[in-house]
Amino acid sequence: MRHLFVVVDASSPMSDQDLKPWRLKATTKLLEYFVEEYFDQNPISQLGLLSSQNKRAEKITELGGNPRRHINALQELSSKTCQGEFSLQNSLDLALSHLRHMPSHASREVLIVMGSLTTCDPGDVRESIKAMAEANIRCSVIGLSAEVRVCKFLCQQTGGSYNVILDESHFKDLLVFQVTPPPSSVSQTKPSRRINKENKEKGACLLFHLDSQTSQGFSSSGYFCPQCKSKYCELPVECKACSLTLVSAPHLARSYHHLFPPDAYREVLTSDILTDGPVYICDKCEQKFCLDCDLFTHETLHSCPGCASFRSLQNVQATTSVH
């Protein structure tokens, strides 16, 4: 589980046109893609958006799990005018105030997309950086113009990564890099911290989902909390009444393919006229696949079509997953 705040710089340097059509527009466009990928890879994680302009930081969206809401907010943001100065300290403080209360078994992160070369802070920014490091919040910065010393310092202190983009495709690569969860966050490698990973109680919420409408206004569809029967229009969410974490089964299932990846296929050369090139054989079910299907099953599908079609192999998989 991750809790991530994305801070978007909306200060006057963001109206530069070195990224087409201008920096802010290009950034929000890439962030839209980022949000979708983020929720695809981290299904029950949360994301929030902050923006900073006029020396102030403001919250655009609360931490939440609904990609559509964030994307709408990003689209609104992209048409705003860029003005004033960027404030690193205000952004960090605002993010910290929200992330501080998040449970420690989830990783807490801040991603700053910064176009400005300066920061305008009310106090000592190093104090904020220290506070971030103490709270174990990982801060990463993607710079749009040039390397800034204070950002580098921030990333070093909090264990994040600092990168400056070369061009738009490099920008995209850097964002995609942020999509995958950090491989070993500090809390997970330290054995003393390990006890923090307690079982989180979750209600797999259910029932009555017709068409999920927008979050505002009345709607006839929604999800009920199994414990207190409160109704919510989007998942995942923590129940306001009984503080049960509500998720739906597909959210959890989305990441299961990481747990049981299909075995690699064996490459075999054949003289079959029908197939050109090598044939790939699954060792379990002994079915043959072409190169395209091999790539497709391992990168996208994550389950072997052959193994899924044999009952005897089903049971093997079921038992391995139980033990």
């Binding site: 990973k197 079982n199 979750k202 259910l206 999800y223 049960l244 299932a253 139980v322």
Partner: peptide, 19 residues
Amino acid sequence: YRAACFCHRNLIDIGYVCS
């Protein structure tokens, strides 16, 4: 939208999830 538990493969309303 209930999920099946890994231990008994029953459909459950409220359960525990490994974090």
